[in-house]
Design a protein around this nucleic acid. Structure first.
Lengths: 335, 335
DNA sequence: CCACGTGGTTGAATCGTTTTAATGCGTACG
DNA sequence: CGTACGCATTAAAACGATTCAACCACGTGG
């Protein structure tokens, strides 16, 4: 059924070795032979079998990328950056979506390991570091995306989320807000914890400021809507005057809930700031202030680090980008 | 370095065949042997080499999916639906992103063919059907996503975009609008052409209605913003009183441009409707009316069709879903 | 005239898993 | 007592591309 090098070789009356050479090192083969083989390939519609190549090579030309949520534009941007860098090397990105679920994360890691990917980039969930450690010990290069690890045992590319959280809340305080609510979760996700930590620091600097934490199940629009409804249903005196959402998806959900049928004025009554600065943030009902991260650059750099480490050019490098405050209408001063 | 079945066999003092049996048909192996082999696998940290499996099997357990744009939530939803169905069979989705670019589309098809994927799902770009035909002739099952082909030679799952376009514009006309602008492109994309066709039909039913077409380079937020600016800069008398954007990303861009610094009132001056009903549509500056498509179901069904056809259970099936109008504030009657 | 390169090409070995026909071994049955 | 059968396991043959040592023919320089 399928045509192999063997068939091509027969058709061009050369050996399989020569066919392989034409495919991989045409300059080593006489031009006339190249022509004959190429013709045979065309004629028979030969297509390389990648499984056989990989088997021989010992590893694939793909890179595994596990993200927390494909629906979050931040991560698709990271993926695109990664894809760009990979394409420069003729490699491919395999995108896995853990959906903030440990089992799914593990399943993708297993899959990638069976595929013998050149490396794994992962925005890891909770602390299943031992699993990653094992993976690395068996010879797979691992780069952490948007996550650093205290013992410095992995390469990583991340953004300083403590600073990001600080910037967000500092901004809220600067515009006169005092009762800040942090909406986000689960706390096991490092990004969430760090952004909260940054928020705490900012609040601690201001005497009469208070921080309240509203935990969510996940970082989705839906979870944000639920949390927002909780806030809306409170007595007016009991509500915060500013909300810092752990990411833009949550923030958009919160915004929807607050404004639902003549609800609460944003930013009049409650100011709102998100995180990630996704494209849609600026198009929200009330254009959303946010903390910008260089998403594509993160992906690009992660692949770069992975390749370097795999080539032995460097061992464990850790890149840290700085986040940036983007002010829009959702945090305007009260009129 | 890496440990193979051979090593496991030696460690458990059985043959490689037995190890393979433990892996794939444990019920055929004596329990005590299973235990011994499993222990050896654990001990040595053995991980199956998927390339070797595939080579033997002749095809992979992955399914290729090529979409027009990963940044469009509609397609990530399709991908999730596909992933769900694939997971039920222990298979994986390989996601390729053509970015509305023929070369990239072709590159992904080549890649998938080399990988010997079990099948290819594709939302094809222009008319590179011969390429798909060849792919199919060489034995790869192909299912068209969101695209039908006149000669019925491929299985497909799609939504009736002509009906969708009709619903959108019919709604605009019903709310009293008469000068309709269709914003979208490139026209070579079937979805765009069909939605426009539907729009034409609706306009043709109403005597005093006019349709204008504003072509865009792509279906992105950016392209929408550019088109929207064009409209905004016109003399008020020259502007349409309603805009039908070929998808929600465009619509969000148009919306941003129209409202820019005290611009045009939506829906007061211009009504706006999009297409796809992505999650963010309801959270837009002005909540966006749209045409809803069952994105996840499309992906799910596409994989289903592919599996059926690959198993020879059916040849060429064509599924057509109906779109649905979702009315929000962006098309409210003028106050 | 012979040894010695050189540019092209060959054939066999290899990667790691799965599969299949064959084998061994014990038990039940005629 | 021998045959037959079932069960567990084995050994060897695939799958298809790549690589590498060997080889060949043909000059060229000594």
């Amino acid at each position: 059924m399928t045509v192999s090098v063997r068939d091509v070789a027969a058709a061009a009356s050369v050996s399989v070795g020569t066919v392989s050479n034409v495919l991989n090192r045409p300059e080593k083969v006489a031009p006339s032979t190249v022509a004959r083989v190429t013709a045979a390939i065309e004629e028979l519609g030969f297509v390389r079998n990648d499984a056989a190549r990989q088997l021989r090579a010992g590893h694939s030309r793909s890179i595994g990328l596990v993200v927390l949520d494909v629906r979050n534009p931040f991560f698709t941007d990271v993926a695109r950056g990664a894809e760009d860098r990979a394409a420069e090397e003729g490699m491919t990105i395999l995108l896995g979506n853990s959906d903030e679920n440990t089992d799914r994360e593990r399943a993708y890691l297993d899959l990638f390991e069976e595929q013998r990917v050149a490396g794994v980039l992962i925005s890891p969930l909770a602390d299943d570091l031992p699993r990653l450690q094992r993976l690395r010990d068996r010879g797979t290069t691992v780069v952490l995306v948007d996550r650093e690890v205290p013992d410095q045992s992995f390469s990583s590319v991340a953004v300083d989320d403590v600073v990001g959280g600080y910037l967000a809340v500092r901004h809220l305080l600067d515009t006169g807000r005092r009762r800040i609510a942090f909406i986000g979760g689960p706390a096991s996700i490092r990004q969430v914890a760090d952004r909260l930590e940054g928020a705490r620091r900012a609040v601690a600097e201001t005497d009469d400021a208070a921080l309240e934490v509203v935990a969510t199940e996940s970082l989705s629009v839906l979870a944000g809507r639920a949390a927002g409804e909780g806030v809306r249903e409170r007595a007016a005196s009991d509500r915060p005057d500013a909300v810092f959402a752990a990411n833009d998806l949550l923030a958009m959900g919160v915004l929807q809930a607050l404004m639902m049928q003549g609800g609460i004025d944003v930013p009049g009554e409650i100011a709102l700031i998100g995180y990630d600065d996704i494209d849609f943030a600026s198009a929200a009902v009330v254009p959303l202030s946010s903390i910008r991260q260089p998403a594509e650059l993160i992906g690009y750099t992660a692949v770069d680090l992975m390749l370097k480490e795999a080539n032995g050019e460097s061992v464990q490098e850790r890149v840290l980008f700085q986040p940036e405050l983007v002010v829009r209408e959702s945090t305007s001063a009260r009129s």
